[in-house]
Design a protein around this nucleic acid. Structure first.
Length: 286
DNA sequence: CCTTGTGTTCTCCG
DNA sequence: CCGGAGAACACAAG
């Protein structure tokens, strides 16, 4: 479940590793979700370089050294971008036996091979993720659909208040809406609500100004901390070296149903809000 | 049946 | 009756 912090971690790491490296070959398997036919997709990327990697919300944008062509990568639920040295994943430190595999494997959909022999694998067991080649006009259209980035300077309290103004839904639905705020998914929506002591199902019109202030701070705080910890590995997420994110141990509510609240004596509950599994402590969130 | 991110469709309301 | 908002549904596959 890569959300903003996970995608941002991959973006920053990959920028250091693959920028301006010539792509020697691209391999697309039959099950890859790519917007062009495989031959056309390979043709765009072969012998090219990525000259920058950008991100909007949970979407990665690779600038190609080819006029008017960009590669969009969305990881959706189980997508991974793993960069290896030859056959072996470069993961050291907290490498995980199960995922310290030889690549490519069954879930590999696309492989980029660079001139130095290193490879970048797009793995996606559930195949919800996709790769898309777009032109500048299409890229612009895609970007326009996203709302404010939580860690950019225009994510002010005033702008957050404007987003909430007149809404007739609950706060979680707002936090998950990519057209309003970009990059928050189910984990960080629940965590931000917990940090702000607000129940995720609270109608926006019922929020006090104090709660709005706390929610604004909570979104910034949680996303920032999660990036520092290189994201959350709950199931499938791995960084570009195949390593887990460290934020799991900082989760206060997500995935903790039935466990004791880390802030009070309550027990974490789980219901459905905005159509998603939602975790909260009804004792210290109001 | 569940999981989540997102695009589409439906419905409601002013 | 139009448009926007929000909810509901669909879809991906394990």
């Amino acid at each position: 479940m890569p959300e903003l912090p996970e995608v941002e971690t991959i973006r920053r790491d990959l920028k250091k590793k693959i920028l301006n490296k010539k792509i020697k070959q691209v391999l697309v398997t039959g099950k890859a979700r790519v917007n062009l036919d495989h031959k056309g997709f390979v043709k765009v990327l072969k012998n090219r370089k990525f000259v920058n990697i950008d991100r909007v919300g949970k979407l990665l944008i690779f600038d190609i050294d080819l006029k008017n062509r960009f590669l969009l990568v969305h990881l959706k639920m189980t997508g991974q971008l793993i960069y290896t040295r030859g056959q072996q994943v470069t993961a050291g430190g907290h490498s995980d036996v199960k995922y310290n595999f030889n690549l490519p494997d069954k879930s590999t959909r696309v492989t980029f091979e660079f001139v130095d022999g290193r490879k970048l694998f797009f793995n996606d067991s559930r195949r919800f993720g996709y790769l898309r080649i777009v032109n500048a006009t299409e890229l612009q259209k895609v970007k326009e659909k996203f709302g404010i980035e939580p860690l950019v300077k225009n994510f002010t309290l005033e702008n957050f208040e404007k987003i909430l103004q007149g809404r007739k839904t609950n706060i979680k639905a707002i936090l998950l809406n990519q057209q309003l705020i970009a990059g928050i998914g189910n984990i960080y929506a629940d965590e931000a609500c917990f940090d702000a002591r607000v129940l995720p199902g609270t109608q926006v019109s019922e929020l006090t100004s104090g709660q709005v202030l706390k929610l604004h701070r909570a979104v910034e705080k949680v996303i920032k901390k999660a990036i520092e910890e290189r994201g959350t590995t709950f199931n499938n997420y791995r960084d570009s070296e195949g390593k887990r994110g460290n934020f799991l141990k900082f989760l206060k509510v997500y995935g903790r149903v039935g466990l004791k609240c880390k802030r009070c004596s309550g027990i974490i509950e789980k219901t459905k809000v905005a159509g998603r599994g939602t975790h909260f402590c009804s004792k210290c969130q109001k």
